[in-house]
């Protein structure tokens, strides 16, 4: 992805937490509470999409906000609160996912416990088709899964994703393009029909 492509991007970063930063000058505790209220649902959902486990997602969300409370730079002028929260959440979630993979061999020998609550996941993602897409995302690399989750489930702009992942805007665009291309391939392999009628139904 060249400079020209990156230059075609139109996003401009704005600090949407300016009001909370102003509040922090007089009352830090109230400002921390305001950060929690503003982002708790989005952070919790992001953790659920990555972990597919409500209990673990709540644990991660708690830890993220405790880290935020103890972060001395949280209300500094240039500090990007939202990007920082999503970055910490992603790191904690992927540590858990990595630990799960390490334990896979041991757990395979034990009786299975359904921790992923399929009914609740269906509630969160919407319809059956989206459940299939979420399942297909599990077959992608961690990098692709992470960027798709940040863009489509957490609804971050390309600028915000660049901030969260610490990469350039052009890299966000090329990585998302590759990730989505790979997702189409996986859905093809799973036999999911991606035709014009389906698109009309999805968009209806």
């Amino acid at each position: 992805m060249g400079t020209e492509s990156a230059a075609a991007l139109s996003g401009v970063f704005t600090d949407e937490d300016e009001d909370i930063k102003r509040l922090s000058r007089t009352n830090r505790r109230a400002a921390v509470d305001a950060v929690v209220r503003r982002y708790r649902d989005r952070i919790l959902h992001h953790a659920i999409y990555v972990l597919k486990d409500y209990q673990e997602a709540v644990d991660v969300t708690q830890e993220v906000f405790i880290k935020a409370m103890r972060e001395p730079r949280l209300f500094d002028g240039e500090f990007r609160v939202k990007a920082w929260l999503f970055r910490v959440t992603s790191n904690l979630c992927f540590n858990i996912v990595r630990d799960r993979r390490r334990r896979t061999n041991i757990l395979d020998a034990m009786p299975k416990v359904d921790r992923y609550m399929p009914d609740q996941i269906e509630n969160i993602v919407g319809d059956e088709r989206q459940v299939v897409i979420l399942g297909a995302m599990d077959k992608l690399t961690g990098e692709h899964k992470e960027i798709l989750s940040l863009r489509y489930y957490s609804d971050l702009s390309y600028n915000e994703i660049a901030d969260v992942l610490g990469i350039k805007l052009g890299t966000v665009m090329s990585r998302l393009s590759r990730a989505k291309g790979r997702l189409v391939e996986v859905l093809d392999e799973l036999g999911v029909v991606l035709d014009e009628d389906t698109v009309r139904k999805v968009l209806a």
């Binding site: 649902d41 919790l44 959902h45 659920i48 409500y54 609740q120 269906e122 509630n123 969160i124 993602v125 919407g126 319809d127 989206q130 897409i133 979420l134 995302m137 798709l148 989750s149 489509y152 489930y153 957490s154 609804d155 989505k180 291309g181 997702l183 189409v184 859905l187 991606l194 035709d195 014009e196 389906t198 698109v199 999805v202 968009l203």
Partner: peptide, 14 residues
């Protein structure tokens, strides 16, 4: 069209 059909979408949430 295929890319659009494969777009993940957030549902109503918890």
């Amino acid at each position: 069209m295929r890319l659009r059909a494969a777009t993940p979408m957030a549902g109503p949430g918890l």
